[in-house]
Every structure is written in structure tokens, then in C-alpha cells.
Amino acid sequence: MIIRVLLLLALAAIGWFIFLRRNKLPFHIVTMFGLLGAGAVAVVVPHETDRIAQWVGVERGADLIIYLSIVAVLFVLVHYFAKFVEIEQKLTQLTRELAILRAEVERVVPPATKVSPSPPASPPASPRPATDDVSELPQ
């Protein structure tokens, strides 16, 4: 059946991605491939899942898989929402620190208001030594 081929290909693709990023904990890898293997079994012999389903009180294996998937998706959603809020707060903190720091620097070195296309006729003498020029530093 076409659907079995498609599902097995999808599982194999996910497996391939996990394999490419395999610099994680061995436990992580084993768990992920275990889940993928279980998925493959459920695709090849779907009626075998009925027994597990009936054992926990669900009639069909396919129904059990859908219920579990919904719970898993909700869990992932909540997890990533929490992560998102956390990252947003870190972004706020960073932006705030940077903004205040830049304002403090601008007290000492006022920002250039306009960028003039041509340099002024007589540039003001720089109090800094020439070595401060970045272009003259060894790369």
C-alpha cells in the first residue's frame, strides 16, 4: 500500500536527520530510534497495536496512537511557548542593557548627527595618537 511506503519514508527521513545530529547523549539517540522503530512496527503490522490498545482500554490501535499524539503535540507546544517567553525576556534584557550602555557611551562620545558626503575642509586635530586608527593595526 502506498500509505505504508510514505509513512516508512517519512520515519526514515526523521531518522536520517537525527543521525546527522548524533552528537547528543546516547540515551537521547536510543530513545529517538526506539520511538521510530515502534512507529515502523505500527506501520507494517497495524493490527498488532490493537492488542496494546485493548489492554489500556481503547478499542483500536490507531485511536490510541492519535490520543497519544495529541497529548505529545500539546506538551511540545506548551514547552516551546515557555521557551519562547523565556527567550523574549532574555532579548528584552539584552536590548535594554545595550541601549543603556550606548546612551552612557554617547555621553562621552556624542553621536554624529549627519553623515556628510565630503570631509570638512580642515578636520579638527585628533587628540588621539595615530596608532588608534584601526586601519593601521596589524590584522
Binding site: 532579548l91 528584552t92 536590548t95 535594554r96 545595550l98 541601549a99 543603556i100 550606548r102 546612551a103 554617547e106
Partner: peptide, 8 residues
């Protein structure tokens, strides 16, 4: 003026 680099 304190300037946020991105809109928050």
C-alpha cells in the same frame, strides 16, 4: 535618548 536596537 536611549535606543532599543529592536522594537520590544
Amino acid at each position: 535618548v536611549v535606543r532599543h536596537a529592536v522594537n520590544l
